[in-house]
Nucleic acid binder design. Structure first.
Lengths: 217, 217, 217, 217
DNA sequence: CATGAATGAGTGTTCATTCAT
DNA sequence: TATGAATGAACACTCATTCAT
């Protein structure tokens, strides 16, 4: 079995939790111990200043297992990030089911993303600040999922244009960029200076500005 | 000649540029090469992941000179930072001369600070993000200058209160904190995602909110 | 397995040599190579002027192993010293069993110590000259063993006082100090100028003076 | 003027103080500053852990002067030691003038040497402990002076044998070795453990044993 | 005679990674 | 799957020494 294929099974998500019983592949416990160790350590310090020795000590497993299960220290981080993002995107897709209309979907999309940033500051900070400087990030699976996430928003926008909910004289990529950019813009200071953020108000504010601009009237 | 005393001579500032011809103290070229090398490297990467070997290689000088001229790698950063900040504060003080009234001074103060953040992204990013986590930062000269800068704003506010330009029922430290916090809040995303910022509009917006709150009516 | 726990197994001592076959813990050969390398180098030069590179080269192992197996260069010395001292103290305690009377025990104690100093000049020299100047020596395990050794002598003296073999009007710590000081005083020149020392005569001389002073008559 | 030729002029000795006015060669003050700096530093720490930077800082001169005036750091030490020894030997030779008889001369020789060891512990410690391990010691001028000193004693002994004061059935080198060895033996513990030594009693004791053995009766 | 600048060779130590079992 | 041992390359930093002036 290939190294990186345990991803989906490791943590329950709304989408695939029911598959658990079917999948008879057992995830080695040491694998989970390691990812948990890294997650726990990331709460306290920079990724670069976490050592493999530290990870293995916290995980209570042999250091070399990091290389059996993952592609070294950086590979471990990317795996952990991918798993995390995967879960978020899966949940997001699930949450948007049953919502009617592009505008409503976008509202939900924004709120969910803000909530996600608020909820897990550790990963959000890594995603927003750290990971972009890593060599090879733009070839990583993590980045693929981010693109998938952005593509998902894109489809909603295009859907809205086709259903005449959204103006057709703005390029969709522009709208997507505005949304994603604004979200980051809102979250960044809160993440960095560790302030609480009020997702409801923030989402409302953003949507008001956004929709007043893009809604077909 | 003592280690850290070249500060003022190394870069022209509005205040002391005319002294340049008088001051017969020669700054060793290697010292400038090293600071430039660090500045240049900081554009591309984290301070912690820059090595002394790298600095000396880029500077084209011997590694040991980093220790002759500065107090090691961190000392080098703090020196460079201090020099930069010093220049900014000197210029700021110079710029504020001849301006009448606390309100006008504050407007200039805000605009100049925004402009400064906009102008040198490398240092601003370090100042806003990196340096605060360094052990010993709050004992460093860098922090002293930051305090001097904040104290300078404080004096303007107090001057405004005494001249009855500014309400006397708000504690000055609160006003100062609001100003500095807002500036940071505005600049952070622009710095991190490297977006252009329009200092004029930003300053206007901030001043409007601020002055409507603190002006004596 | 923890760093410092090989102590007892590495070298046969009278007390635990018979356990050797039972203890299934294998001491990494590199560990022994390193200690031997240090011991060998100490014959020729000062501890401070021995480099880790030198140690690893003589040992024929990787330099980093010094840090895997021991707490750095100084830790290595203290470990080696402790092992050696431990063996000596263990043997001494064993040798004193079955001897009746405090006076006889003290005689044996003196003789054994002189013999020990005579036997391993390298360590004795370090113990008598070098180690005392090291920062942290008085917190080291080495010093703990030295204290244990001195405490052991103390107990014999007190035993002698209670059994009325030794005068009770001299403070025991004084007697202990006289014994230990005299031994050092005798051994020092022999150690430094590498002269043979006649333990039998030396012990006799010392005991004669000592016992004439402390025996209850 | 050659590097090492200021030796004799630098410090007044009984023998050549009167030459001072004649010798019109001026000793550069920086030279004296450096030697004094080293002497002063040696009181507190190991020669090996004294740096050239430290020496020059204490001396208040430029570091490179150590290489103008002396043969580097080690050369400086040897120069300083030689000067010191030279002074001692000169004084010793002067002191022995006017004394009649080999036995009397030897007594004076012993007393003076003990006194010298007692008087300047710093140099005595270096001479007795440190310098012997230095590579090139046995080719150094320092060692030449030590040999001269030993040779001087030798001549007294031979003189005593010829004048029939001393037995002629003991090889002179043996007597010399006994004297020098005994002196060292006496002084070592006092030097290392920094105890005061009573030169008069020590000299008496040693002479009693010595003369009872070598005097012709 | 004196000096500030410069340097090469090392210093102890760390760490991500590999290997043999 | 798991592990203890091993390692090469790097790390920040130091120092005796040389050089140009």
């Amino acid at each position: 079995m290939k190294k990186e294929n345990y991803d989906i099974m490791q943590k329950e998500t709304k989408n695939n939790s029911f598959c658990q019983n079917l999948a008879k592949v057992s995830v080695p416990p040491s694998r989970i111990k390691i990812t948990n160790a890294l997650k726990s350590l990331l709460k306290d310090k920079d990724f670069n200043s976490i050592t493999t020795a530290e990870i293995s000590r916290v995980a209570g497993v042999n250091e070399a297992l990091i290389y059996r299960h993952f592609d070294g220290k950086r590979g471990l981080l990317h795996t952990v990030l991918s798993e995390y993002l995967n879960e978020f995107v899966s949940n997001l897709i699930f949450d948007l089911k049953g919502i009617k209309g592009a505008i409503n979907k976008i509202r939900k999309f924004i709120w969910a993303t803000l909530h996600y940033y608020d909820d897990d500051r550790v990963f959000s900070q890594i995603l927003l600040l750290e990971v972009r400087n890593f060599p090879g990030y733009f070839e990583s699976e993590t980045y693929q999922i981010v693109k998938q996430y952005a593509g998902f928003l894109m489809k909603i926008i295009e859907e809205g244009i086709q259903s005449a909910e959204i103006r057709d004289d703005i390029v969709p990529a522009g709208i997507r960029q505005f949304i994603l950019g604004s979200i980051e813009h809102y979250c960044l200071p809160a993440l960095i200076y560790n302030k609480k953020m009020d997702c409801d108000i923030l989402a409302d504010n953003l949507c008001e500005i956004l929709f007043s601009g893009i809604k077909k009237h």
